[in-house]
Design a protein around this nucleic acid. Structure first.
Lengths: 155, 155
DNA sequence: GGTCTAATCTGCAAGCATTGTTGATTGCCA
DNA sequence: TGGCAATCAACAATGCTTGCAGATTAGACC
C-alpha cells in the first residue's frame, strides 16, 4: 500500500473524502504487517480515537481493497485478514492454533500441475496456503500434554 | 470416503448410531463429487426425506469430517464445501463467478519456496487454490457485454 | 472565514453460515 | 421387547459483515 500521505492524495483524486478516521486506519495498516482482522484494526485505531465505529473501519478497508491498496484474504480463520503488502507477490503461512499469518515467497513457475488445467477456465490467481502450528502454539501444546501427564500421575 | 454400507459399519464401530437421516447424507455425498455446501447437501437429501433438518445435515457432515471420511474446505465462497475425495491428494480450482469447484492434481514436491519456511513452524497441510472464471461464467460475461453494446447502440 | 451539499460518521438492525439448546423420538444392545 | 443413550427437529444464539437512517463534516465555492 501507499503511505498515509499518498493515500490522502489518492482518495481525493478518486473523489473520496479524507477524514481523521480514515487517516487513522491508513496509519495503522501502514505500520501493521501482521495481516490484522477488521476487529484488530478497529482496536488499534480505537486506542487513538475511541469514538470510531467498527462500521467505519470496515468501510475504509473495503475502499482500500477496491482501490487495490490492500488485499482482502480469506484464510479460513473465521474473519477476513487484510494484507497491506500488494507490491510483492507472496503466499501465506497460517497457524491453525492462534491464527498467526506470515508471508512466504514461492516460485509459482516451478509448480507443475499433473494434468493441464481445464482449457476453458481463465485463471486470475493461484494461491498457496501453508497450514500448521506456529512455534508458540506447539510449545503450548507440549506444556498442556505434560500437564495432563502430571495430573494423571497425581490422580 | 467409504461407501454408504461401509460407513454404516464405521459409525457403529465408533459408537455412533446409524439413522435414516445419516444414511441419506451418506448416499448424497457418495454420489455427488461437486464439492457441495451443507445447504446443497440438505436440499438433495430433503428431496428424499423432506422432514430432515439442516442442523442434522451439519451434524453428520461434522461427524464425517472428524472421522476423516470427507474434507471440510474453506474456499472463500461464503459457505464451507465438502469433498468426499480424501483418497487422492489434490487441490482445487474455484470459479469466482458461480462457486464451481474442480479438483486439480499438482506436484507439490516441485514447488520451491524462495526462502525456507520458518524453522519452528510445523506444517500440516499445503493447499493450492486456483481462482478464476469457469467456461460458463466467461460465456455469460461475454453475452452481457455484447448485450450492453447493443443497448448502447440502440439508445 | 462563512455557506452549502454530498459524502461520511455512528449506532443499530439485519443477513448469512454455523453451532448451542432442549424436549421429543428412535436406534440398538441386552 | 424394554430401556436408555444417542439423535432428531425446531428454534435461539453466535460471529462476521453489511444495510440503513439520521446526525455530522470535508472540502469546493464565494
Amino acid at each position: 500500500m501507499h503511505s498515509p500521505e499518498e493515500l490522502t492524495q489518492r482518495f481525493r483524486e478518486v473523489g473520496l473524502k479524507v477524514t481523521p478516521q480514515r487517516q487513522a486506519v491508513f496509519r495503522v495498516l501502514y505500520q501493521n504487517h501482521t495481516h490484522p482482522s477488521a476487529e484488530t484494526v478497529y482496536e488499534q485505531v480505537a486506542e487513538q480515537m475511541p469514538t470510531i465505529s467498527l462500521r467505519t473501519v470496515y468501510q475504509t478497508l473495503n475502499d482500500l481493497t477496491d482501490m487495490g491498496e490492500i488485499l482482502h484474504l480469506d484464510l479460513g480463520t473465521g474473519s477476513a485478514r487484510f494484507d497491506s503488502n500488494v507490491e510483492h507477490a507472496h503466499h501465506h503461512l497460517v497457524c491453525e492454533g492462534c491464527g498467526l499469518v506470515r508471508d512466504v515467497e514461492a516460485d509459482l513457475d516451478s509448480l507443475k500441475f499433473n494434468e493441464t488445467l481445464p482449457s476453458g477456465f481463465l485463471v486470475s490467481e493461484t494461491e498457496i496456503l501453508v497450514r500448521g502450528q506456529c512455534e508458540h502454539c506447539l510449545a503450548q501444546d507440549q506444556n498442556r500434554r505434560s500437564q495432563d501427564q502430571h495430573s494423571k500421575a497425581g490422580a
